[in-house]
């Protein structure tokens, strides 16, 4: 039985207000298991980046909830979210985002520095991460001296230095030619295979998406297709049932009178019940 890592229920994200209101996500339900490699695919403007930002806890949803490893993240304070990201997630971006003037090693160390790990320990772990991506010999080099592919592998080293549960990769090969891109892909998938790190890749590159064991297609803020559509229907039905129950409770006056009907507040009630 695969272990559930992420559950997303009724996720909505609205940008702007009133006239300039734009609904980027319109009710996303999905489950991701530990060790999966998932590609989130879609045209630009489909909402795939927004979905990734929400999954990565970089942004908060307007409605809905994300449950990570059994923790309802909408209940967490910003500080705890920061800690969670620092401990559980690794990030790989299309534009690398490295400090070009600093050494490769110092770039890899960054998440550990933020976590407050001691100097000796973080050095050791960063060297280990660099060894995994095959760049230990470049540790002392300036980041700006590396090639594009090497840079992205350093970024992968940075993403795994904290032993994360999930790596979020936003178009990881978008800035690379096909040869170097292939090497970066290989590094990512081997981490997924060997270290059981869950991989969530946002891409519009179909070839890369095909290499993942699951593709989630996003269109107009909704899931268009997913191998695991059954789960989604399940969640949908769950939410509907909860709403129904809520409505009943509301009528009998058991609940607060503030119309707890939207998906976000469903979770509110549920957590209360669990306690």
């Amino acid at each position: 039985m695969p272990e559930n890592l992420l559950t997303v229920r009724g996720l909505h994200k609205v940008y702007g207000k009133r006239d300039s209101k734009f609904e980027a996500l319109r009710g996303i339900n999905l489950k991701i298991n530990r060790g999966e490699s998932v590609a989130i695919v879609g045209k630009s403007g489909s909402g795939k980046s927004t979905l990734m930002h929400l999954l990565a806890l970089l942004d908060r949803p307007t409605k809905g909830e994300i449950i990570l490893d059994g923790t309802n993240t909408s209940k967490l304070k910003q500080r705890d979210l920061n800690k969670l990201r620092n401990k559980e997630f690794g990030f790989v971006f299309q534009q690398f985002f490295m400090n070009a003037n600093d050494t490769v090693l110092n770039n890899v160390i960054l998440p550990l520095k933020i976590a407050g790990v001691g100097a000796k320990e973080r050095r050791r772990r960063a060297m280990h991460a660099l060894t995994i991506v095959g760049l230990e010999s470049k540790a002392k080099n300036k980041a700006s001296d590396l090639s594009g592919g090497q840079k992205q592998r350093v970024c992968i080293a940075r993403a795994i230095v904290n032993n994360p549960a999930v790596i979020f990769a936003d178009e990881p090969t978008g800035n690379l030619d096909s040869n170097t891109g292939a090497k970066v892909e290989e590094t990512l998938f081997s981490l997924n295979r060997d270290k059981d790190i869950t991989l969530i890749i946002v891409t519009h590159d179909e070839e890369l998406a095909e290499k993942c064991n699951r593709q989630i297609r996003i269109s107009d803020g909704r899931i268009e297709s997913d191998e695991d559509l059954a789960t989604e229907r399940e969640i949908e039905a769950e939410i509907a049932a909860e709403n129904e129950e809520l409505r009943k409770n509301h009528k009998t006056g058991d609940m607060d009178a503030d119309g707890l009907r939207d998906d976000a507040t469903v979770s509110h009630v549920k957590v209360k019940e669990v306690k």
Partner: peptide, 16 residues
């Protein structure tokens, strides 16, 4: 700006 963005994405708090 981008460096700050990265720091924050990697879990640095506003206070830091």
């Amino acid at each position: 700006t981008r460096e700050i963005g990265l720091d924050k994405a990697l879990g640095m708090s506003n206070g830091r």
